[in-house]
Nucleic acid binder design. Structure first.
Length: 575
DNA sequence: GCCGTTTTCGGCCCGACTGTTTTCAGTCG
């Protein structure tokens, strides 16, 4: 079993947790956590980078020591530091940190006074009323722990972005109706458009922050108020989502938005810049001494720090600050740049709408083209098309195009199955008649990394294949990506003139943000496609665009920002 | 543990809220 970047990040987080519980230097703990986030966000596997002879300590935030430990973990070794920590602190104890209200200090106290090392022992002690007598604890904390345990907390639950949106929209409507609320926005990872969000962070501007808090607390979906103060409240909604609201005066709104949008690493980096300039940055503004020199908008704060305004999607401390300082931030792709969709199904296979309805919906969105990519025959459960059925569909598409007019074109295409050995599921002669060919893996997810990579390489050897759809097969919160050598695949794609998809289904978002960035670095253009199975799913485009933006993609990096003739010229058959 | 056209040692972002405290530690983001 290869050691993935996620595995390495988890080990680094475990070291950080154990060090934290031991009472180590907090900056040392932070270094491990920061390294975990860096490794997690790398587009390429650490194992590959090491095999290529790259120095991990070239990454900002990773020095010689951490580079050595990461290499050891990647090689499947147990770092001596971790072994040592596990001798001193029972390793299972880190699970207690996931319980709200329990941090490293209290967890350590629980261990030292009552010998508690796991959730079951904690629950037993709390039920027996033994926590309240520990110094620093009391009856209220004991009750809160019991309540958290009864809610089954301890396992952080992250919502997919689309689910979060459905919670956010009515909540924002409620807030914006509040008297004296001048602006309201969702910040946090939601605003950065991460594929999943933990909790929701709201920021409102009001001359009377306390009244704004009171209005927020009147929202009828609130199940429990966990905290409330004059400028901040924290609640849990009926559906279990935690929502934090921060209310500030308009002069601080930009500063508060900046602070609560994060990421934390981005915020810390900005504050360091402020300190270097003899300034102080907090959620109320940017200050020289006691005088506020910026705060009403994010833009004026960035400007005062000598930075171009940084779009929320880039705020991960992954190079955006240097780019903003040097005036080389990307001009990110937007939904308005998209001219068409290159992956959609109809009721000929597993879609829900007719060819005509899908065409109509795409045209109504202002698109110039829509590729119809039904499944091929191998996918029997989706009633995949064989050569004859496909020929009939192609003829129907040509006929429909003759009647549609208005600068809109349906493209005859297919989502052809990539078989276990890398061959495509339809004969070349059939594929040659199509406008473009999208290929995808739908079976044999369990192949070794080597075999899965070879499979896709072989598929790309077929010159009819234009785009690899949902390249890693991952399903967010449900199925990990199958192991692939993505760097090798992207380099091969560039050589062959093949392209990769950013599948915009909110459950997929595949390529991910960091893989988008890798594709751009290697020079492979991507198609942002919805894989719509009905007209309404054409609207998923914006989720794909969001991921592409997180991956630093500009309009030129995206195939379907182009008018049809330019698009066709970029495909292999046009070359 | 990281990092440095001020530094290779001595810094490291900043504040709100809670509960348990008689003035503040712990947690959280």
């Amino acid at each position: 079993m290869p050691v993935t970047n996620a595995d390495i990040a988890a080990e680094l987080d475990r070291i950080a947790d154990l060090l934290d519980i031991e009472g180590a230097n907090p900056f040392r703990v932070r270094a491990y956590r920061r390294a975990a986030r860096i490794v997690e966000g790398l587009p390429r596997s650490v194992a590959d980078m090491l095999a290529a002879g790259e120095d991990l300590d070239a990454l900002p935030g990773i020095g010689k020591d951490l580079a050595g430990k990461i290499a050891a973990i990647a090689a499947g070794q147990h770092p001596p530091l971790l072994a040592e920590l596990e001798r001193e602190v029972p390793p299972g104890i880190t699970a207690l940190l996931a319980i709200p209200g329990l941090g490293p200090k209290r967890v350590r106290t629980l261990y030292e006074t009552l010998g508690i090392t796991d959730v079951a022992a904690l629950a037993a002690a709390a039920r027996a009323g033994r926590l309240r007598s520990i110094p620093g604890f009391g009856p209220v904390i004991e009750a809160k722990i019991l309540e958290a345990l009864s809610r089954g907390e301890g396992q952080p639950r992250r919502l997919k972005l689309r689910a979060a949106e459905q919670i956010v929209e009515p909540l924002l409507r409620h807030l914006r109706q509040g008297r004296g609320i001048l602006a309201a926005e969702v910040a946090g990872s939601y605003r950065r458009r991460r594929e999943t969000v933990g909790d929701l962070d709201l920021v409102v501007a009001s001359e009377t922050p306390e009244a704004a808090i009171a209005h927020f607390l009147g929202y009828d979906e609130i199940a429990q108020v966990a905290e409330r103060g004059p400028t901040r409240a924290r609640v849990v909604l009926r559906n279990g989502t935690q929502v934090d609201l921060r209310a500030v005066e308009p002069a601080s709104y930009g500063a508060a938005l900046l602070y609560f949008t994060g990421s934390q690493a981005h915020d810390i980096a900005l504050r360091r810049i402020a300190v270097e300039k003899g300034l102080k940055l907090n959620e109320y503004g940017l200050f020289r001494g006691r005088r506020r020199i910026a705060g009403r908008t994010e833009e004026e704060i960035y400007a005062a720090l000598g930075l171009a305004p940084i779009p929320p999607e880039l705020r991960e401390d992954l190079g955006e600050i240097a780019a903003a300082r040097e005036g080389r931030l990307p001009r990110l792709v937007t939904a308005a740049d998209i001219r068409g969709d290159l992956h959609a199904h109809t009721d000929a296979t597993d879609g829900r709408a007719s060819l005509k309805d899908m065409a109509q919906a795409a045209r109504d969105r202002g698109y110039a083209y829509l590729a119809i990519t039904d499944h091929s025959r191998r996918l029997t459960m989706a009633h995949g098309l064989g050569p004859k059925e496909l020929a009939r569909q192609v003829a129907a598409i040509r006929r429909l195009n003759a009647t549609l007019g208005g600068g809109f074109t349906l493209l005859a295409s297919i989502e052809v199955d990539i078989l276990e050995d890398g061959r495509l599921d339809l004969p070349d002669a059939v594929l040659a008649d199509l406008d473009l060919v999208v290929g995808a893996i739908h079976s044999h997810f369990g192949l070794s990394r080597e075999k899965q990579t070879e499979r896709l390489l072989r598929a790309m050897d077929n010159r009819h294949l234009d785009i690899i759809a949902h390249p890693t097969g991952r399903m967010i919160n449900a199925r990990p990506p199958y192991p692939l050598d993505m760097e090798r695949l992207l380099r091969a794609a560039r050589e062959r003139g093949c392209h990769f998809e950013v599948n915009a289904q909110p459950d997929r978002l595949d390529l991910s943000d960091s893989l988008c960035r890798l594709a751009k670095e290697i020079g492979v253009k991507v198609a942002i496609s919805t894989d719509a199975h009905g007209p309404e799913e054409l609207a998923f485009m914006r989720y794909g665009v969001d991921q592409a933006r997180r991956g630093w993609l500009e309009p030129d990096d995206v195939l379907n920002t182009r008018p049809l003739p330019e698009l066709m010229a970029l495909l292999r058959r046009g070359a």
